[in-house]
Design a protein around this nucleic acid. Structure first.
Lengths: 117, 117
DNA sequence: CAGTATCCGAGTAGATACTG
DNA sequence: CAGTATCTACTCGGATACTG
């Protein structure tokens, strides 16, 4: 390492981008929710409740609101009776697919490694 | 969505792998620390303190211990005076590189998108 | 230098119950 | 069905100070 001054290193842009990404995807459920939407397409609130095992409605609601705020999902109220609500990924959310894939790959390898020890 | 029963969907393996990965990499700092170690190679405690701007020694210490537990870094005590300690990525940690890259790419695109709105 | 000890506040997450 | 309201427990992260 020597005398590097980290404060003036290049790549600050990428550092900030990384921090933003971590902020947006933070929490126990967001990435799992995104993955469900990838796998199943449009989903209703109750679908997501079932898909994300053990999540409570309050927490799911919070997570969905944050994802919507960050433009990763859309929320649509359907004029049915009773009323239903659909959630869908935005085009922008496609950018998170590589993240999810990479996480899964890492997880698989990690599980394998733990097993081998 | 229709009548899918999520509990019996295939890909449970991948779901668990994803949850493991999320658990291991959780928190505000772990991924940033890993990235620093990628960029700079071996680093000492104080180097990491500087590189992860605003982190406190207590928090850094915690994060490093967890990363070590999960076999992502090694901790080496050097016989110098005063004693120094080096942290390094394990081979296994290489598997997290795609995650970090994907996060950065997503972050960059997200920042751009926000700007454009 | 490389941490640990304490304390604290904020945010996260869950249980449970209720509403339009 | 799709949430919200309330309350509670717990974890996370930070401030500050101290030690071998």
């Amino acid at each position: 390492m020597g005398k590097s001054n980290f404060k003036s290193e290049p790549g600050i842009e990428r550092q900030l981008a990384l921090q933003d990404a971590l902020d947006i995807l933070r929490g126990k459920w967001k990435i799992l929710i995104l993955r469900s939407l990838y796998l199943y397409g449009t989903m209703r609130f109750k679908d997501l409740l079932e898909a994300s095992k053990n999540i409570t409605p309050k927490v799911l609601s919070n997570e969905l609101q944050q994802l919507e705020l960050n433009l990763l999902i859309t929320r649509t109220v359907n004029n049915t009776k009773p009323i239903t609500v659909s959630y869908e990924l935005t085009n922008h959310a496609i950018e998170t697919l590589p993240v999810i894939k990479a996480l899964i790959e890492f997880g698989l390898k990690h599980r394998k490694k733990i097993k081998d020890n």
